[in-house]
Every structure is written in C-alpha cells, then in structure tokens.
Simulated scan of single mutants.
Amino acid sequence: MAGKVRDIMTGSPVTVSPQDDIITVAKKMRDEDIGAVLVTDGGDLRGLVTDRDLVVRGLVQGGDLTKVDVGGVCSEATASVSPDDSLESAAKLMREHAVRRLPVVEDGRPVGIVSLGDLAIEKDEQSAVADISAAKPNV
C-alpha cells in the first residue's frame, strides 16, 4: 500500500499560462481528457483551473471568450503538497481547504496533481468515490 503522495499522484501535469484564453484551455482539457490543469507563470505555480471553473467563472461572462484569460478564472493554489508528503497529510489539507485536488510541488515547481479520487482508490477501494474514480470515462 502506498504511503507517499508520489506513489499515487498524476505526474507530468498539464500546465497553462495565466494569459491563455479559456477556449484554448478547454480544448487542451478535452484533448488530454482531464478535468483540471495547473496555471503556471514562468514555471511557478499560480493556481489551478477546473472544467467547472471554466464554465462557472468564464463562460458566463459571455462575449468573445477568446479574450477571457484563464488567470482571471482559476482558483488560487491555497495549498500544495510535496511528493514525499504522506497521504494522510494530503487528505488533511484537502479537508482543511475544502478542495478535491492538490498541486504537487517539488523545489518550487509543480510536478503533479493528487486528487480526492486518487486517495479514495488507495485508501478505501470499496468506497463509492473509489468506484467512480476508477471507472472508465463516458465517451
């Protein structure tokens, strides 16, 4: 059984620039079949944007969506973990900050993402969250 974040995280995270427009980011998420990307500026983590953020904070603005920068709709990275942090530490941070995903940062640079689903699969594989997270995506 895994004990460290590095054992279950998704490595090589997809990143975007704060200046990227939300249409470009949405297409990248579609093409990569992912629901969240890290927002970086010069390699430094600035935030995280989810498919929900794109809709709730971006799409509703209307107008020319190619002029809506992802930096204005992303969530600030209020918490992150190290690859060597324990899974318990990651779960505690998710609970404290009420988030479903945590950026994984090493030497100041993002190296992965760990999700609530990743933790559920590892810690309680019989749970409904683990079942849903392990299921093949609908296409």
Rank of each mutant, 00 (worst) to 15 (best):
L93K: 14
L93E: 14
M94K: 10
R95M: 06
R95N: 11
E96H: 03
H97W: 12
A98V: 07
V99A: 11
R100Q: 03
R101S: 11
R101L: 04
L102T: 09
L102G: 09
P103R: 04
P103T: 07
P103M: 06
V104R: 00
V104D: 09
V104G: 03
V104M: 05
V105A: 08
E106R: 13
E106L: 08
E106V: 03
D107E: 15
D107W: 04
G108I: 06
G108Y: 11
R109M: 09
R109E: 15
R109H: 14
R109S: 15
P110K: 12
V111P: 00
V111I: 14
V111W: 06
G112A: 01
G112D: 03
G112K: 00
I113Q: 08
V114Q: 01
V114W: 01
V114L: 02
S115L: 01
S115T: 15
G117I: 03
G117L: 06
D118K: 02
D118V: 06
L119R: 04
L119Q: 10
L119M: 08
L119A: 07
A120I: 12
I121L: 12
I121C: 06
I121H: 04
I121T: 09
K123T: 15
K123G: 09
K123M: 15
K123R: 14
K123Y: 13
D124E: 15
E125V: 09
S127M: 12
A128P: 00
V129W: 07
A130Y: 03
A130V: 03
A130P: 00
D131M: 07
D131K: 10
I132R: 02
I132C: 00
S133I: 11
S133T: 12
S133C: 11
A134V: 05
A134C: 02
A134L: 06
A134K: 07
A135H: 02
K136Q: 10
K136A: 12
